[in-house]
Nucleic acid binder design. Structure first.
Length: 197
DNA sequence: CGTACGATCTGCT
DNA sequence: GCAGATCGTACGA
């Protein structure tokens, strides 16, 4: 299966891209361990005018530096001191757009995923939630800045698509501080019960 | 240098 | 439903 091309991530419409990412497959291979899952929930963070974004107002720090790079890299940061959140940087250089991956549906390396999550069975609680996604796939802040066309973290289009009616749209989670921007319909998800492989 | 706080998860009630 | 975990980052002194 082909990896998504580097051009895919240059899309200027991060909201549209967030929706398009639903159904794509996210892979990681660390220390020879291959794991992957279908992306089932995303959130768009739309650059310097988005109050919820780390780059709001053009803020540029050591932490969010990679957001200003050309699209197609991983932006991984630590949240609440213990969760590694994985984002996909999009758009061209100096336009700090990103998509937070909030949930996946595991399809490869389930054993490894269960082990990393310290779980015994696969229920929807296993990989729904951004901190859980990173834990399941072994993604940590040390992977910040990795190119998504490489051989550690990458995405594939496996031709999985969903009826548009199954794609839910809503407001982003945990961004109350963004005031009116917290109301934007920038979150997309499908229910795992709607997945037919 | 000190401090406040998060794009969350878990376990207990 | 709610509190505790846990620490790098950001920012002001």
């Amino acid at each position: 299966m082909p990896k998504l091309s580097p051009e895919y991530y240059l899309n200027e419409n991060v909201v549209e891209l967030s929706k398009d990412l639903i159904g794509k497959v996210l892979f990681t291979k660390f220390e020879g361990k291959l794991t992957a899952g279908i992306i089932t929930e995303t959130e768009a963070y739309a650059g310097i005018n988005d109050k919820a974004s780390h780059a709001y107002g053009g803020k540029r720090t050591h932490r969010n530096e990679v957001m200003y790079h050309q699209g197609g890299k991983a932006y991984v940061y630590l949240c609440y001191g213990l969760h590694h959140l994985f984002n996909i940087v999009t758009n061209t250089e100096n336009i700090p757009h990103a998509v937070l991956i909030r949930a996946i549906y595991p399809i490869i390396g389930e054993k490894e995923i269960l082990k990393r999550r310290n779980a015994v069975k696969n229920n929807y609680n296993l990989t729904v939630g951004p901190g859980k996604v990173s834990q399941a796939l072994g993604i940590q802040t040390k992977h910040n800045g990795l190119v998504l066309s490489g051989n550690q973290i990458w995405l594939e289009d496996q031709g999985i698509s969903f009826n548009q009616k199954l794609i839910n749209v809503g407001t982003r989670i945990g961004v109350e501080y963004a005031k009116e921007d917290a109301l934007l319909p920038y979150r997309f998800w499908i229910n795992h019960s709607d997945i037919r492989l």
